[in-house]
């Protein structure tokens, strides 16, 4: 019945159906979140007996003064600032081109999607060859343009760029698929109407495609921000379990890993996790706010 009113019994019944997923979420997501938040305030703590002797903000003070953490924040921010816009624009561009071709479209889609389903370790292995100082493809290619060989993986000045290239390349396929889905959702008749109204293909892109694709752009951007802030496995695999030459690729997630598993400073790791969470939350909210404003200016409110 459509007009049935919720009763105590029906609410209980609904909760019963929801219970399995609810319990899993509570135990494996909500509880760890709360406990890590609490853990970041433990100053004297025995991890093995789970005994807390003192509470305070000392862990955050430690982070505030730790040059390693400063480096991690700096590297992560540089990484995010470069990776997010490049991934979004590049994947949008490729999606627009793929949307245009009729033949072999699914072939190209598969090609672009492959990196996403391949294991990070395998990817790192291949890129280790590509970045190789003497025999790498990239240096060979650059030498054609008269660029001297670069030691991508061992020179601290270039190793972050190497990481950025690998990450962009890996994320591309998934974002292209999202954009293609978004493009397919735009009704062809708007383009027909626009061409009747005298819009060139460039004008169609800025006046039809871009505004009608806003929700997909937001999705891809927010997703890119979150995954970029949490980058870890690519660093670990590309630099064989280190944070790159002279910690040049030390990211916040890598810092957290190191504190937790290597240095056993669990409470500091938890505190850095909270800081990372704060960063992600702020940037994501800013991005959403920007797009919402942008969408309003365009006259739409699909968000």
């Amino acid at each position: 019945m459509i007009n049935a009113k919720p009763t105590l019994k029906s609410t209980f019944k609904a909760l019963l159906y929801l219970a399995p997923l609810l319990i899993i979420t509570l135990v494996f997501t909500i509880w760890p979140l709360i406990s890590s938040f609490l853990m970041s305030f433990y100053t004297k703590y025995n991890y093995f007996t789970n005994k807390v002797s003192a509470l305070g903000g000392a862990n955050f003070v430690y982070l505030w003064h730790d040059p390693d953490f400063h480096l991690a924040v700096r590297n992560t921010l540089i990484f995010v600032v470069i990776v997010v816009p490049v991934t979004v624009l590049l994947s949008l561009g490729i999606a627009l081109l793929l949307n245009r071709i009729n033949r072999l479209a699914s072939f190209f889609r598969t090609i672009y999607f492959l990196p996403f389903v391949t294991s990070t370790v395998a990817i790192a292995l291949v890129w280790n060859w590509i970045f190789h100082y003497n025999h790498g493809l990239l240096n060979q290619l650059l030498s054609c343009f008269g660029v001297h060989p670069i030691d991508w993986l061992n020179n601290p000045r270039y190793s972050l760029i190497a990481l950025i290239i690998v990450c962009i390349w890996r994320e591309l396929g998934f974002n292209i698929i999202l954009f293609l889905a978004g493009l397919n959702n735009i009704d062809r008749r708007y383009y027909r109407a626009a061409s009747v109204d005298g819009a060139s293909s460039k004008q169609q892109l800025t006046n039809i495609t871009w505004p009608l694709l806003t929700s997909t752009i937001v999705l891809v951007t927010v997703n890119a921000i979150i995954t970029s802030f949490k980058v870890f496995d690519q660093v670990f695999a590309l630099f064989h379990g280190t944070a790159g030459p002279a910690n040049a690729d030390l990211t916040m997630m890598y810092y957290l890993y190191q504190k937790f598993y290597v240095e056993n400073q669990y409470t500091v790791a938890a505190a850095s996790g909270i800081v990372l969470f704060g960063f992600i939350a702020i940037v994501t909210i800013l991005a959403c706010w920007y797009f919402r404003r942008h969408a309003k200016l365009l006259g739409g409110n699909q968000l």
């Binding site: 060139s200 006046n207 039809i208 009608l212 006259g299 739409g300």
Partner: peptide, 16 residues
């Protein structure tokens, strides 16, 4: 165009 107001819809060919 769903994202444009009535006025902007009518003015679209002028804008182009």
């Amino acid at each position: 165009y769903p994202h444009l107001s009535v006025l902007d819809n009518i003015a679209f060919p002028f804008k182009m």
